[in-house]
């Protein structure tokens, strides 16, 4: 099962390697990982998308908690968090399909951020499934390059945790 895990870590030397090494060393999967500082300088926040059965997920969260630099781990079960991902997509856009690319971008409320006579670069933000959907439509038109951030997640509701 797909899980989105949020990890608050001390902004220490090598902390990313510790987390990545834990996953590779114990044979856990990482589908995506995004990391950046929070509003506290000393703390960074990671969003990791992983998959596994209940026993594996329990081991993943326990092992993350065991790392000295990890302050907090939250395993968001389905529906308990809002997830957003951004993708930058460079699409072939010549004579006949230039308009079509723009129409698709419009439907997904994506923005064109770079234009050449032969291509459009589009920025799209949304849930991972929305990003999948626009890529599905753009692919037949000629997808030249793609970069995705991987999702970031935040819990639903009024309660927040600082850092």
């Amino acid at each position: 099962m797909r899980h989105t895990i949020t990890v608050l870590v001390e902004n220490e030397f090598g902390v990313l390697s510790r987390v990545a090494g834990l996953f590779s060393g114990r044979g856990f999967n990482i589908d995506s990982l995004s990391v950046a500082p929070t509003n506290e300088d000393s703390i960074s926040r990671m969003t990791i998308v992983t998959r596994g059965d209940e026993q594996i997920l329990e081991q993943i969260t326990k092992h993350l908690n065991k790392l000295i630099d990890v302050i907090k781990v939250i395993d968001f079960t389905d529906g308990s968090a809002v997830e957003r991902e951004m993708a930058l997509v460079k699409v072939t856009a010549e004579d006949d399909n230039r308009a079509e690319v723009l129409r698709i971008a419009d439907i997904f409320r994506a923005k064109v951020i770079d234009v050449t006579p032969k291509s459009y670069t589009i920025e799209v933000t949304g849930s991972p499934s929305k990003v999948d959907a626009i890529l599905e439509l753009l692919r037949p038109l000629g997808l030249k390059e793609l970069v995705r951030t991987g999702p970031v997640a935040i819990g639903r509701g009024a309660k927040g945790w600082k850092g």
């Binding site: 030397f13 090598g14 390697s17 510790r18 060393g25 000295i68």
Partner: peptide, 16 residues
């Protein structure tokens, strides 16, 4: 050595 021993120490430190 920090990289080498990361998976076989409880924790390690580089003093900068």
């Amino acid at each position: 050595i920090i990289g080498i021993t990361r998976p076989c120490t409880k924790h390690n430190f580089l003093v900068k």
